[in-house]
Design a protein around this nucleic acid. Structure first.
Length: 317
RNA sequence: GCACAGGUGGGUGAGUGGUUAAAGCCGACAGACUGUAAAUCUGUUCCUCCUAGCGAGGUACGGAGGUUCGAAUCCUCCCCUGUGCA
């Protein structure tokens, strides 16, 4: 370990798929070591979205300070860049207070943006995107890909011709910066400095995870997800970003009469399961992660993790 | 009991004599991911073998026979399911 990081403060990162018990675990860690929790879940950042996001409830939030939770207006957009900036500021403040920062979340891109940084590229341009989308609509399915190939061949080789959002971002970067996106990538990223990062991964058995996800999604509907969705869609319009996400999307379809309640629950469960799987694909690549084959609310898993964090904190001194 | 309709791979559902191990969709599994990522996209998906290939063999469209060079597809009988009439 490099000398300058040997005495750097510890940063605990808890990652894992949805339903793996990250919240319960983070609370234990924060309580025990005077920690503050930094949310790293894209949808949980939006205010007023409660039931469908499985945010920590009020009693849970009282157990430790929480950050980047409930901090955005439902009509706003958050990007990975926004998140990384806010999270880094939050981390600085926690450090000044002498507390342990515990980053908890399931949004892989946000976590990477925070820890590794993003490349130095231009921000989104809504106008440009609108133009691209419109042109793509009447010029056929591979139009965007052909445009990108002309602007940045190696980017086009990496991005599949069907992957519209990534093609649009790449074209946007090339056009706005007047450089190839892949050239900008070569300039590197600004990774988070000054912390000893301890990544703890939760990886419960797939079958058990899916069962838990099914149960939880059903409970969300039983606890009033439909009512919450109805209210939020009235207030912010059906197009509000968080209303497009897991559970809310299906609830909205049910409200519109496109899905029966039973079908909506099934679809929501399915979407959550698929999401959990995608998260695992992402997190498996996360470097230097210590994996635990259980749920974060399992006392044995908690005990083991508490011990390991303890050891790291002692080693820090 | 009679009359129709139908039984296809994990599910759904095409296919009605031959490049059909069987479309498509879903699921499952695996993968990608550099500013809306709870998004978006890709691959594999009967079994066995290898020199790992538009490779070889074996099974497979309810069951048993049959017709045919060749059957998921045609014929016979049987077993199930749905609907209508008794």
């Amino acid at each position: 370990m490099p000398a300058e990081t040997a005495f750097a403060p510890l940063l605990v990162v808890i990652l894992g798929p949805t339903g793996s018990g990250k919240t319960a675990l983070s609370l234990e860690v924060a309580e025990r070591f005077q920690g503050e929790i930094v949310n790293c879940d894209s949808v949980a950042m939006y205010r007023e979205f409660e039931i469908g996001t499985a945010k920590p409830n009020l009693a849970e939030r009282a157990r430790a300070p929480h950050h980047l939770l409930d901090c955005m207006d439902p009509t706003s957009f958050v990007t990975a860049g926004d998140y990384a900036r806010m999270a880094r500021q939050t981390l600085d403040q926690i450090r000044l207070r002498g507390n342990l920062a515990v980053v908890v979340g399931g949004t892989g891109l946000y976590l990477r943006a925070l820890l590794d940084g993003l490349f130095h590229g231009p921000e989104r341009s809504e106008a440009l995107r609108e133009r691209l989308r419109r042109r793509a609509a009447d010029r056929g399915p591979h139009h965007l890909w052909r445009v990108l190939r002309r602007l940045d061949l190696s980017a086009a080789e990496k991005i599949h011709a069907h992957d519209t959002p990534k093609l649009i971002r790449a074209i946007e970067v090339c056009l706005a910066s007047r450089q190839k996106m892949t050239d900008l990538w070569k300039q590197g990223r600004e990774s988070l400095q000054g912390y000893r990062i301890m990544r703890l991964g939760l990886n419960p058995a797939r079958e058990a995870l899916y069962q838990r996800i099914n149960r939880r999604a059903q409970q969300m509907f039983a606890c009033g997800l439909l009512e919450e969705t109805r209210e939020l869609s009235h207030r912010y319009g059906e197009l509000a970003t968080p209303l497009q996400s897991l559970g809310y999307k299906q609830a909205l379809q049910c409200i519109r009469g496109e899905l029966s309640l039973e079908a909506a629950i099934k679809a929501a469960q399915q979407a959550h399961r698929n999401y959990a799987k995608r998260q695992m694909t992402w997190f498996r690549r996360e470097p230097d992660t210590t994996w635990f084959g259980g749920f974060g609310d399992d006392p044995r898993v908690q005990q083991e993790i508490l011990n390991q964090v303890q050891q790291q904190l002692v080693a820090n001194r």
